[in-house]
Computed example of a mutant assay.
Amino acid sequence: MLAKRNGVPIGAMAASTWLFVYPRGIYDILLYVKKKYNNPLIYITENGIDEANNATLSLEEALADNMRIHYYYHHLSFLLQAIKDGANVKGYFAWSLLDNFEWSSGYTVRFGINYVDYKNGLKRYSKLSAKWFKNLLKNGGI
């Protein structure tokens, strides 16, 4: 995976230094796989973005993950276009339902569309992105 093209980052860096935001990439890779491998059945099992676990934020601020909504909106728009262009995608799963322990980062980053309060009995709160996804599914898509 390359984070730069011609010395320029492909997109904004997420909280993890290895993760860059490039929505068109999902379209490009799906059309490449379609052409190269005779259009196999595809399930996207992880797609998402992390943010730093900032303990100084209020709960209200921590739940306002507008950058994640932006991320999903643009990635899903490119995914829809890839499907319209013939990519055989049958499933998509956001990464991740809940904030959790990330194997290389521990609890320093948050990937979930639901906030987990690690200091209050692991209580869960829907982030704005969870509400956005609910609305997306209720209304039948982008």
Rank of each mutant, 00 (worst) to 15 (best):
D85W: 11
V8L: 04
I113W: 03
A3E: 12
R124W: 01
A3L: 14
A3P: 11
Y118H: 12
A52K: 13
A52L: 13
K36G: 00
Y73K: 15
V109C: 01
G91A: 10
L80A: 14
W103E: 04
F111K: 01
V89R: 02
G11A: 08
F111G: 05
H70A: 13
K134I: 09
W132T: 05
F20P: 00
D117W: 06
F20N: 09
Y73D: 12
K119C: 00
F93S: 11
N53A: 14
K131E: 13
F93E: 02
N6F: 07
L19S: 12
P40D: 11
R110H: 13
S96V: 06
G86C: 05
W95P: 03
A130Q: 10
V116C: 01
D117T: 07
F93N: 07
A64S: 11
A55W: 01
S105I: 00
H70K: 15
A82E: 08
R68A: 09
W132F: 07
A87H: 11
S96W: 02
I29Q: 13
K131F: 01
V89H: 05
D99Y: 03
K134R: 15
G86P: 09
K34A: 10
K127R: 12
I142S: 12
N39S: 10
I26H: 08
L31V: 11
T108L: 07
N54A: 02
A64I: 00
N54V: 01
N38F: 10
I83S: 09
V89Y: 05
N6S: 07
L63Q: 02
Q81N: 11
